[in-house]
C-alpha cells in the first residue's frame, strides 16, 4: 500500500486526509480505504489464519478492528451453522425451504469471507463451533437456533454501530444488518407466520432490539468451544 499513508491502530486513514476528501466513495475509488489496506496486507501474509485450537481464548481486539472481529466471529458461527443445516437437512424440509436456507448459507459465508479479507492480518482465527445442543434432523431445533442467531446478529450490529469511528465500516455494517433482518423475518415466519416483527423483537416505539457486545457474547458463547474475550472492545 502507499507508504505515505499510515493507519492508527484501530483507527482510520481519514484523519490524515484533507476534510473534503473524507467521502466514503472517494476513499473507495481512490483505493485507500482501510478495508482495502487490510486486503492488501492479507495478500502479503499467509493465505489462512491458523485455526484456533480447541478451548483457546480469542481476544477480539480494540477499536474499530475489535468491532469488525466481533462481527467476524458472529458471521463465522452463522456460516458454520447453515453449512451444517444444508449438509444434514432436517426431516420434512420443503424445496422452497432448502432453496432459501441455501441462500442464507451463501450470504453468511460471503459475510464471513468479507470480514476475513477486510481484516487481513488483524483477523482473529477460525473459531471452533459447538453445535452439540442442536438436533440438525429436527426442523424445530434447527429453526429455533436459526432464529436465535438471526435476531442476535441484528441486535449485535444495531448495538455496535455507535462504537465505530469509521463511516466506511458503519456503512458496511448497515449493508449487512438489513440482510440479517431479512433472514430473521423469514425464519420467524417459518416457525410462526406473522411473527416477523412481533413484540419479542420490536418495542412500543417500533424499534428493534439492541444488545451490547457483552450481552451478545454471553448468548453466543454456548455455541463456541473457544472463549471469546470482548473486554478490549470500545465498551465491554
Amino acid at each position: 500500500m502507499k507508504s505515505s499513508m499510515t493507519t492508527k491502530p484501530g483507527g482510520t486513514l481519514e484523519a490524515g486526509l484533507p476534510r473534503p476528501m473524507h467521502r466514503r466513495n472517494f476513499l473507495r475509488y481512490a483505493g485507500v480505504s482501510v478495508l482495502g489496506t487490510g486486503l492488501l496486507a492479507a495478500a502479503c501474509t499467509k493465505d489462512d489464519p491458523n485455526p484456533l485450537t480447541y478451548g483457546e481464548t480469542v481476544n477480539l481486539g480494540s477499536g474499530d478492528i475489535g468491532i469488525l472481529n466481533y462481527a467476524y466471529a458472529l458471521e463465522q458461527l452463522e456460516a458454520a451453522f447453515y453449512i451444517q443445516v444444508i449438509q444434514t437437512q432436517y426431516s420434512g424440509i420443503t424445496a422452497a425451504e432448502t432453496a432459501l436456507l441455501t441462500d442464507i448459507r451463501d450470504h453468511e459465508v460471503a459475510h464471513r469471507e468479507f470480514f476475513k479479507a477486510a481484516l487481513g492480518i488483524s483477523a482473529i482465527g477460525g473459531l471452533t463451533p459447538d453445535f452439540s445442543k442442536i438436533n440438525f434432523s429436527s426442523r424445530e431445533s434447527v429453526l429455533a437456533t436459526a432464529k436465535t442467531f438471526e435476531d442476535l446478529g441484528v441486535s449485535a450490529y444495531n448495538g455496535a454501530g455507535r462504537y465505530l469511528t469509521s463511516a466506511d465500516y458503519l456503512t458496511i455494517a448497515g449493508k449487512i444488518v438489513s440482510v440479517e433482518a431479512r433472514h430473521a423475518a423469514y425464519i420467524r415466519n417459518l416457525i410462526s407466520n406473522g411473527s416477523f416483527a412481533n413484540s419479542e423483537v420490536v418495542d412500543a416505539n417500533g424499534l428493534d432490539v439492541v444488545r451490547t457486545p457483552t450481552e451478545v457474547i454471553i448468548l453466543a458463547q454456548p455455541f463456541v468451544r473457544n472463549t471469546i474475550d470482548a473486554t478490549n472492545l470500545p465498551i465491554a
Binding site: R182, F196, V209
Partner: peptide
Amino acid sequence: PNLLGKGDVLTAALNIHSVEARHAS
C-alpha cells in the same frame, strides 16, 4: 454515515432500519 458517532440517535436509526428490513422481507 451522517449519524456517525451520534450515540443514541444512530442506535435509534439503526433500530428503525432493521425493523423496515423485517417488513420488507
